[in-house]
Design a protein around this nucleic acid. Sequence first.
DNA 1: ATGAAAGCGCTAACAG
DNA 2: CTGTTAGCGCTTTCAT
Lengths: 349, 349
Amino acid sequence: MKKRTTLKELAKELDVSISTVSKALKNSPEISQDTIDKVKAFAKLLNYRPNNIALSLKNKKTKTIGIIIPDIVHHFFTKVIKGVENYANAKGYNVIVGLSNESFSNEVINMEMLANGSIDGFIVSMSRETMQHQDYQHFNETLNEGIPLVMFDRIVNEIPCDKVAVDDTKGAQMAVKTLLNKGAKKIALITTKDYVSVGRLRTKGYIEALNANGITPIPELILKIDDDLLYEDSLENLESQIKMLFAQHHDVDGIFAVNELYAVVAMKVAKSLGISIPEQLQVIGFTDGMLSKHASPSLSTVSQHGESMGQKAAELLIQRIDEYTSEKPPQPFNSVIITTDLILRESTK
Amino acid sequence: MKKRTTLKELAKELDVSISTVSKALKNSPEISQDTIDKVKAFAKLLNYRPNNIALSLKNKKTKTIGIIIPDIVHHFFTKVIKGVENYANAKGYNVIVGLSNESFSNEVINMEMLANGSIDGFIVSMSRETMQHQDYQHFNETLNEGIPLVMFDRIVNEIPCDKVAVDDTKGAQMAVKTLLNKGAKKIALITTKDYVSVGRLRTKGYIEALNANGITPIPELILKIDDDLLYEDSLENLESQIKMLFAQHHDVDGIFAVNELYAVVAMKVAKSLGISIPEQLQVIGFTDGMLSKHASPSLSTVSQHGESMGQKAAELLIQRIDEYTSEKPPQPFNSVIITTDLILRESTK
DNA sequence: ATGAAAGCGCTAACAG
DNA sequence: CTGTTAGCGCTTTCAT
């Protein structure tokens, strides 16, 4: 277990000063080619590699970014992380992942832990609790301390920062419109409670699409699911609500669900009731994940392009980090919208 | 954008020395209660929080651990990360995630990047390429530099470190035995190429279970899929292979697949051929993910307990980190086996 | 009870 | 061309 070599050691062995070694390794023109060669050869021999931590302390930059998400067991967030990693690594950044588990306090604690010098900036999707409490103080504090922040997916206007959002409303509109075009007359919506921004926006899209087609939305056809479904125990609740919907409205022939799980569960319930898909009932979900692809019938869905979101978020963040450190004039904040695509599969005609 | 307060600033404002402030904040008995109070009050006022980087440099501990995985868009790894995060955070550690994308060089680069002081230890599941090349030099180097390493899931004996593995062979045995008990006579296996350790071990379990029941394994019933299926484009290849299997062996009445995707695809093909599940064909997969739960019929599966694996890995790693820094006598390496559970659902009788 | 000083590993302004 | 020095923020030993 040999210890990591330091500049000091190299210097001592070569009998030159530390700064000479430091400069030589950077090909400084101040140093003679001769010593440069000697130093480099020796450094390679001892397998010298600079200590990141020391560099961070010196440069006041850690070259790592923190991403805070509500849950990692979730295809969409996973895609986003992948996008962030790809872009960040290419730029020489590492990525620290913090999980809030949908809890406000976890989110705060995680961010505070990282804000104490561990990271150069944050990429965040708010926890459900934070959205409910509408307490954004920790975000604003972070920003005040000069740590840039990019929010994605679960966005809120109150926070002055860069944002990357999905075009939730448009995506939902498109889905519902497609359902209508394909002959659906009575389309139900399975969505979240309104405090979830993406649920709210997708609900908006649903209503707008109906209105645009001269259809008055029927409140009874809108299921606002209470529990965030990532928490798997609430599935039964969902199933029974959907059963009730079918019981009361035999003629529902279309369903738009704001995530793929709701959609898949709806299909399952429908099948168990002997309703055939897509003949009697067409279904479109949101988020293009594993479930959609491998459900049977496979699920038509609005694709969110999580990986692109992650990339874009990382890009905005690193740009902002550069701006801060180079003391450039501050640029206005960006709000990037990632457009959605409709992927048609077997659950629609 | 106010800057972070430092000890120095506090000291200047309070007109005491830096070391006094430092000690006061730690309730050092060397400092009078009076100054302690004063310092603390002022520190709180200015919202002082210590700089992690400076601490890391001083202590030579970063309080962060690096986890390197082949792919994050994968339920199992995601569960493991969650387990690692939970345990690590509780112990005051952060988690840096590195993705190898199943590539050897990415794995090496990622580890080198982090090994330069950014982390106190690694938790790793090898990339597919690494398993193929059987080049473990980077792991050994890391260990030589005194950075502890815990491997999980994709394990290899050649590396002297702590390990957390799934009981792949037993899990597979149990699955096949269950299939037999439930009346299956001719059981096919869908597995990976042998260089994937977990695939190899599960194949072993399959063969052992058959042998134990006096059945001679038929090579034709063993499909060794070439491409790692996480790469989604190779699905068609899989489907056609499965079709061929059914064409040549009408009487296959059981399938054991080494992951849930293979199993779900097999069910899909079977259904498309009019084979009813579980009546004519019973299926068991491996890994208890979203797909298994929400497939229709829902998939019986061997659960790997990814979250427990992550927790255990983090526990072993942090223990090892403590050992290293406290210069305790080295303990022998642990190999923890996480036992599997069989979850019976609709795809078996 | 308080402070000065060294040092963690590295960089860079300044001197020679 | 090479070396000295100060400093990043903090801890800790050793004076005082």
